[in-house]
Amino acid sequence: MSTETDTQTEKQSRFGGLDGYRIALYTVLGLLVLFFLTPIESGLVTSLKTATAVTNTEPYLPPLSGAEFSLENYATAFDALANGVFNSLLFAIPATVVSALFGSFAAYGLTLVDWKYQVPILVLFVAGVFIPYQAVLVPLSRLYSIIDFAALLSFVWALTPLSPEYANLVELAVTHIAYGIPICTVLFRSYYTTMSEEMMEAARLDGASVRRIYRRIVFPLSTPMFAVVLIYQFTQIWNDLLFALVIVATSSSPASPVTLDLAGLGVSMQGQDFGLRMAGAFIAALPTLLVYIAFGDEFAEGVAT
């Protein structure tokens, strides 16, 4: 829609005719900003307060005096979560990249080439986006008790300082890749259907094979979509608790991801130390918040597709 000032003012006057309308509109939008940011703001200020200040001051006010202010929550939370952050990065990054690649491959093979029954296969991918994961949890546990990654990867534990519990992270990565493929495929497919069919045909006539067309045409043109998918998928994998809970089981494991540690942080403190909880929440949310602040538009695009 046009953003030209003339049409804008004209439109304004036609819609309401008075500035009151605009004032009301911006007031509502401002209140909504307040609504969406308050829980986060309140968490942030609380995380910076001493335990007494948390109970004795207003929850939305920042610490006003040196006596109220404390970074101790962050120090404690960091000690509790640092290992979890490291573990989460360890499996989330490879799982994100691999599932995005698989998604791009699959979407290419199901969209831009020519063979029958692509649509039925695609339906299976799309349906995979929507399944409730509870329906696969027990088999997943069975599967990983049968395939012993800890034994299979014994050379890794021998060569690195990582303990055999880190096999759980391999399982988590595999799990997230497998269950991330459907959404990644759907995202890439929606992008590939907008690519020019004549261009693909031109490449074919230029003598390029299916593989070469991907390598030289489709992959380079996918860069913007890779940004979207990587960001979206990273957020999803980083934020997951269910698979972590089922596969790693306990936050006492050296390989436990940050979400599991954070959920456990409340338990060990009997749920009452809100300052610590909030500090933990911010540490756990930091990577996704940073990604969101840097690439919010890509995230929004991934979400909207």
């Binding site: 979400t259 756990a284 969101y292």
Partner: peptide
């Protein structure tokens, strides 16, 4: 913004 956060958070 809230959508980018984890349920845990």
């Amino acid at each position: 913004l809230p959508m980018s956060l984890s349920f845990v958070v």
